[in-house]
C-alpha cells in the first residue's frame, strides 16, 4: 500500500503518459493528436519535478533557518522543456491550420481519402 501511495505522483506520471501516448496514436483528429502530445509531454515535466523533491526540503530559495532544499536543476531543465513544448505545439497548430486550408478537413482518414482520390 505504501508503495502505491508513497509514489502517487509517479503513478500520475505513468497514467498521464499512457493517456497522452494513446491519444496521439489512436485519435484521427489532428488537433486531438496535438492535445495528446501535450499531455504526454506534461507527464514528463511532472516526472522531472518529482525527481527533484528532497524529503522535508523547501523551495530552493536561500533563507535563514532552512538548510534542506529541493534540487532546483530539474526545475530549470523543465523550464527549457516547457519552452520547447510550446514551440512544438505552436508549429503543430500552424501546420494544422495550413492542412485545413489545403484539404478542408483535419480528420486523418478524410485527408488520406482526398490524397488518393486525386
Amino acid at each position: 500500500m505504501e508503495v502505491v501511495l508513497g509514489h502517487y505522483n509517479y503513478w500520475v506520471v505513468i497514467f498521464l503518459m499512457m493517456t497522452g501516448f494513446y491519444t496521439v496514436i489512436n485519435r484521427g483528429n489532428l488537433v486531438k493528436k496535438i492535445i495528446g502530445l501535450n499531455i504526454f509531454q506534461v507527464s514528463v515535466f511532472i516526472l522531472y519535478i518529482s525527481i527533484s523533491t528532497v524529503e522535508n526540503g523547501t523551495t530552493p530559495i536561500l533563507k535563514e533557518g532552512f538548510e534542506v532544499y529541493s534540487n532546483p536543476l530539474p526545475h530549470v531543465l523543465i523550464l527549457t522543456a516547457i519552452v520547447v513544448g510550446v514551440a512544438t505545439t505552436a508549429l503543430a497548430l500552424a501546420l494544422v491550420v495550413r492542412i485545413k486550408e489545403a484539404y478542408g478537413t483535419i480528420e486523418e482518414d478524410e485527408i488520406h481519402q482526398r490524397d488518393h482520390s486525386l
Binding site: F21, V24, L30, K33, L37, F40, Q41, V44, V84, T88, L91, A92, L95, V96, R98, I99, A102, Y103, I111, D115
Partner: peptide, 20 residues
C-alpha cells in the same frame, strides 16, 4: 504539394515522441 504539410505533421508527431 499539399502532402508536404501532412508529411511535416507526421514527422513532427513522431519526432516529438522520439525527443520526449
Amino acid at each position: 504539394k499539399r502532402q508536404a504539410l501532412t508529411s511535416a505533421y507526421q514527422y513532427l508527431v513522431m519526432g516529438t515522441i522520439g525527443a520526449t
